[in-house]
Design a protein around this nucleic acid. Structure first.
Length: 426
RNA sequence: GGAAGGGUGGCUGAGUGGUUUAAAGCACCGGUCUUGAAAACCGGCGAGCCGAAAGGUUCCGGGGGUUCGAAUCCCUCCCCUUCCGCCA
């Protein structure tokens, strides 16, 4: 959520940054609602001041044994005006709030201006894609031949977009989660959280998934709960409605499955593990002081990159342009892994600085030394997302005979296994 | 799911219709004293909104009601604790 005061004082700057995003918002309506609200507030507060004084006087006169019928009558009349104005203010504030919740964040000044993904800039490319002396297979072939994933039966029980990992395939999945959590907790100083996978409406609104992206969420209407689309939601909302009681930065890491309806992407990437309704992810979340948030973003990006470096996978980092930035982000780096079987790059992480956008929605504040509480800056980034990481490992580490070499860093998590080979028979 | 008891500032906790402008303590900040620290003493110390400011207003889990006036009374919902039931 943007700061209403800032909107009031800088409407043109807001119009410009929204235009850079390709978003249009009726700012004039918001400014008019705001003006009417402030006027009504001043009126009602003056009336309340009078009423409070009169009420106090009634108390004093009653105590003195005097009659108060006359003054009670005037106060009763005042009460009616107050009730009417309060009602009007409630309507105005609800309308204002509803509108503010649908305005995307302002892109950071450094974010490149562009219309859509075509405007994203490659910041760096790390590692060289391997040269194959055979035609590399797509991961679906490898996974099915090696008995790592059962797509057919998963579809039978849940539908398209779900996978059942089996045997070594399941263990590899689990190993990756463990491996990433270990690095972030022991080397990067993150505190591990294992949060709920179902969250309420307030949490989904706090991080910005609601109200705009409602159709992309799995909902449980009977209890008004939602399956988490990312650990960002439960973890960031841990401190909702709080003044944080611990020194910043607070760095948290969580593994959760992620559930997404992919409503806008029906029919895309239907084969394999690339676009799933359920996938696992290790997520990094930070709460930081505003002055440091862009340094913290670089730091966060580095932590996500570490995972790919340890796994010796080729990747590149993109800086998202204004038109491709997600709703809540001010600045964002995407990390993409090279997948030779797809002959394409796969996004496995988005590292974003939300500045105070989420903090204002979720009312997450901290107390600067000797000062008034103010909103923290929140950041998060995948560190990293499974399924696509799994794809990249299979495709990059495949051998001519259809086997897959286990990345050295992962072997301790797989009981020393060096190579995943075809089962003799199944 | 049933019953009972609770929910007050960063924390503990008083407050059952009218100077509550929410007591007090702890924590925290500043000062005195001290070579320094501690202790002691003195002072300060909740949040949001409106306002150029002075100041005003709202907030005692959420929402609604009674009243001239509600932390306090009533209704409702949520959460916590204990007991019972069910259960991995």
């Amino acid at each position: 959520m943007l700061d209403l005061k800032f909107i009031r004082e800088n409407p043109d700057a807001i119009r410009q940054s929204l235009a850079n995003r390709g978003s249009t918002v009726d700012l004039d309506a918001i400014l008019a609602l705001d003006a009417e609200r402030r006027q009504a507030l001043q009126d009602v507060e003056r009336l309340k001041q009078e009423r409070n004084a009169s009420s106090k006087e009634i108390g004093l006169r009653k105590r003195a044994g005097e009659d108060t019928e006359d003054i009670q009558a005037t106060v009763r009349a005042q009460g009616e005006s107050i009730a009417a104005l309060d009602q009007r203010i409630r309507v105005l504030e609800t309308e204002l709030e509803d509108r503010l919740l649908t305005i995307p964040n302002r892109p950071a000044a450094v974010a490149p201006i562009g219309p859509d993904a075509s405007g994203n800039q490659v910041v760096k490319t790390v590692g060289k894609p391997r040269r194959f002396d055979f035609d590399p297979l797509p991961h679906v072939e490898l996974a099915e031949r090696l008995g790592l994933v059962d797509f057919g039966r998963a579809a039978k029980i849940s539908g398209a977009g779900f996978a059942a990992y089996t045997g070594v395939g399941a263990r590899l999945e689990r190993a990756l989660v463990q491996f990433m959590l270990d690095i972030h907790t022991t080397e990067h100083g993150y505190h591990e959280i294992s949060p709920p996978f179902l969250v309420n409406r307030a949490a989904m609104t706090g991080t910005g998934q609601l109200p705009k992206m409602a159709e992309d969420m799995y909902a449980v209407p009977a209890d008004d709960l939602f399956l988490v689309p990312t650990a960002e939601v439960p973890v960031t909302n841990l401190f909702r409605d709080e003044i944080m009681d611990r020194p910043l930065p607070v760095k948290l890491v969580a593994y959760t499955p992620c559930f997404r309806r992919e409503a806008g992407a029906a029919g895309r990437d239907t084969r394999g593990l690339i676009r799933m309704h359920q996938f696992d992810k290790v997520e990094l979340v930070k709460f930081v002081e505003p002055e440091t948030s862009y340094d913290e973003l670089e730091d966060l990006l580095g932590h996500a990159e570490t995972i790919l470096q340890r796994l010796e996978l080729p990747y590149r980092v993109l800086e998202l342009c204004t038109g491709d930035l997600s709703f809540a982000a001010a600045r964002c780096y995407d990390i993409e892994l090279w997948a030779p079987g797809q002959n394409d790059w796969l996004e496995v992480s988005s590292c974003s600085n939300f500045e105070d956008f989420q903090a204002r929605r979720a009312r997450i504040r901290y107390r600067p030394e000797g000062g008034k509480p103010q909103f923290v800056h929140t950041l998060n980034g995948s560190g990293v997302a499974l399924a696509r990481l799994y794809v990249a490992i299979l495709e990059n580490y495949q051998n001519a005979d259809g086997s897959v070499t286990v990345p050295a860093a992962l072997r301790p998590y797989l009981g020393g296994l060096e190579r995943i080979e075809s089962p003799v028979s199944t």
